[in-house]
């Protein structure tokens, strides 16, 4: 009856690899001030240097230390990723569960809004809006969250609808419990594993989006970001700097996304236990 998320992830080797990658990334971003040897924003005249003892990955066109920027870039990436992951999961849960619990007109309205957002391609909207407002990190998190909770809401609603019919929910109602109590004590706890999977995919999407937007140059230019670093590096692709500027950044971004994908994939049987079929057979 119980689905053990820890067990699901531990038992798949990609899951284990994913967890290790994520732990490394998180550690790096937390320890960024220690790992970085220079202020990532500090410009100098020593531009476009090759890697050396002083500058492990050399410097960029305005003389900033690339290693320091790479380390701080992880912070931005993960901050946006986890921020959006948490916020959109919350929004998705609140709207999905409340729609299931309250039903009626409210449910119809919420679900039609969800449908509308799902058909409109999110990337275009984000690019359009970002181009005008040049979002700071906080605004970016809000914007991405507002545009990405709908898929989760749909899944939460479907799950809540089925959980709502459980005997213990009927029992709680027969003690006089209100919707909020039932949602909080009886529905949301059982959504836990699904929330986690949704959360991980939410994070992955946000990391990807943030990098993409920064690459397009429509995020806050004063915040160091992997997307922006890749964009800068590309303009110097005729030099050999790509080896220590573009490649490490690309690898860091890819690893983060791969890590998230692995963990998410390993946890997926939680939503759909039939995915475990291969093991049984």
């Amino acid at each position: 009856m119980h689905i053990d998320l820890k067990k699901e992830i531990k038992e798949s080797s990609p899951g284990k690899i994913g967890i290790i990658i994520l732990l490394v990334m998180i550690t790096v971003s937390l320890l960024a001030p220690v790992l970085a040897r220079y202020d990532p924003y500090q410009q100098s005249t020593a531009s476009l240097l090759s890697p050396s003892w002083n500058h492990w990955l050399g410097t960029n066109h305005v003389g900033q230390d690339i290693w320091s920027r790479l380390v701080f870039g992880a912070r931005t990436s993960l901050l946006v990723g986890f921020g959006v992951g948490i916020l959109s999961m919350l929004l998705g849960t609140v709207f999905g569960v409340s729609a299931a619990m309250l039903g009626g007109l409210y449910e119809k309205v919420v679900m039609r809004i969800v449908d509308a957002f799902i058909v409109i391609p999110m990337v275009i909207i984000v690019i359009l809006i970002s181009a005008y407002i040049r979002p700071s990190i906080l605004t970016l998190i809000l914007l991405l969250s507002l545009l990405s909770w709908q898929g989760g809401a749909r899944i939460m609603r479907a799950q809540a609808l089925s959980l709502k019919e459980r005997g213990h929910v009927a029992a709680a109602r027969s003690f006089g419990a209100h919707h909020f109590y039932i949602a909080w004590r009886h529905i949301v706890p059982d959504l836990g594993p699904i929330l986690l999977v949704e959360f991980i995919y939410g994070v992955r999407r946000a990391v990807f989006m943030e990098a993409g937007l920064a690459f397009l140059g429509i995020t806050d230019p004063t915040v160091v970001s992997w997307g922006m670093m890749m964009r800068d590096a590309l303009s110097f692709s005729y030099l050999n700097v790509w080896q220590w500027w573009l490649v490490p950044t690309g690898v860091a971004l890819s690893l983060t996304i791969i890590g998230l994908t692995f963990v998410g994939h390993a946890a997926e049987p939680v939503i759909e236990p039939r995915l475990r079929g291969a093991e049984v057979a």
Binding site: G167, A171, A172, D190
Partner: peptide
Amino acid sequence: QMVFQNPGESLSHRLSVLEAVMEPLDI
């Protein structure tokens, strides 16, 4: 009050014996 047909279903698997009996009072 009502006692439901299937006790296994009507008791939340997340609540201990004491929590389950206290639930109506909590509510």
